[in-house]
Design a binder for these strands. Sequence first.
DNA 1: GATGCTATTGAGTGTGCGACCAATAAGCAA
DNA 2: TTGCTTATTGGTCGCACACTCAATAGCATC
Lengths: 255, 255
Amino acid sequence: MSSSVQRKRIRKSPEARRAEIVATAARVALTEGLECVTLRRVAEELAVRPGLISHYFPSAEDLVAAAFAVAALGELDALLPAERPDGTPAQYLARYFALSSGAAYDDISRLWINARHLSRYRPVLRDVVTRMELASDDRLETLILDGVARGEFRTDDARSAAIQILVVLDGLGAHANSDRTDRPPAVTRLALSTAERALDLPHGTLDAPGATGTLPLAFSPTEAAEAAVASEMAGAAGTPGAAEGTGAGEAVGDA
Amino acid sequence: MSSSVQRKRIRKSPEARRAEIVATAARVALTEGLECVTLRRVAEELAVRPGLISHYFPSAEDLVAAAFAVAALGELDALLPAERPDGTPAQYLARYFALSSGAAYDDISRLWINARHLSRYRPVLRDVVTRMELASDDRLETLILDGVARGEFRTDDARSAAIQILVVLDGLGAHANSDRTDRPPAVTRLALSTAERALDLPHGTLDAPGATGTLPLAFSPTEAAEAAVASEMAGAAGTPGAAEGTGAGEAVGDA
DNA sequence: GATGCTATTGAGTGTGCGACCAATAAGCAA
DNA sequence: TTGCTTATTGGTCGCACACTCAATAGCATC
């Protein structure tokens, strides 16, 4: 007995190890919840000792915040890509709504509920949540402005429209842990009808089949995407032009 | 030193002690969060030993669920009373929206975020959350049906309208732990405009000053109300007509 | 092949949690 | 007043957590 499962140390570069840790933490956060992002849990996942995680994240709160940042940004990119080469804004918006009503979206809803709750007690996480909310607002606002420029949408306040849509999506996602069968159609479509109203679109314009055109409905942020996301976070970390991050950003970014 | 703060035991009837425990737990849940509803915390609050709390709630999860049930039902009664002797449905609905945008509502939003998240891991709490969601739906649906009967509202699906309104309120409340200044007016009014649309009301009908008539905007569920709520929970506890509750209800109700 | 840097380990600290249980005493009934 | 029921205590156990730090061993460099 007591066959030590691993006797050989594997020594990696700090950058590689840190990226690995954050990616693992993000995966745990998304599938099991931010409370499960513990030193022990992440260490076990990577087959290393908990002390090593502490070495890279002297404060566990930074790790949790980084995990959320990476997971949330990865999902945002999957749902509402920053680059949209393959279709019109209306098609991407329709795709967004289509994905948002799928079962895979439940994980993201759960993650956001989790983060919003936990941010009550954890200031570092709260900062990241705020930043991710702004990032979502920006992303959708940009899409809407693009659609307005092309004449697809009509609104005099793209940001307000974006926030209204996201608020409704938050409301629909709030029940991700409860049973939501027997929801009336008007409720299921609430995000769509809010968008249609805010963007002055005819009823049904954004409904899934057809409206997405040839856009792929695939929904799987890869690990590569998450790594890219991590470096993106590094850039966006601190308050404008500062070298000192706000904890999480710093945790993800520096090395 | 070491003046034992309390040397004399105070022996109470099981009913009184249980009610006291649940009321305290509900207060802790509302002000500090459901994670703070621990045996030790509640015991300290009541100046008793933790073992006593265990005696009344052999499983801590039941205590948490009971705390949420009492807190949430108390708040529901304060926001959307079951009895409405002092005004019209429209006035009570306007009052509801007025209260829902006040700062005091943040505590309730936080509680719901908390419960929805925690219910991911705690089945007993999940049941209570589901029941409380249904109770909210029912309460608002009844109000709407009443308004329709009086000719104040117009809708062919009162429940759908109720759920739509509540979903939007959930979405707005989701950010109770983040910063929400600089929200566009269209977002702040989103619940109202959703209601106006769903109930076929002219714009502005439900806005706060004036629309509430002489209705008091006071918002303070008393301890007495919470006690009443506790006994109400006892009645609504089990699945229809059963003596055995589903854990939380049982915890609140039996004696 | 030897050397130095440092990533990684192993062991330990302290805290807070739920759960358990025998001993104790409060207060009601005889 | 006496006795009995049981509400309440006090103490303990095991677990999971974050955090600390000296010792160890990869691995790049010379």
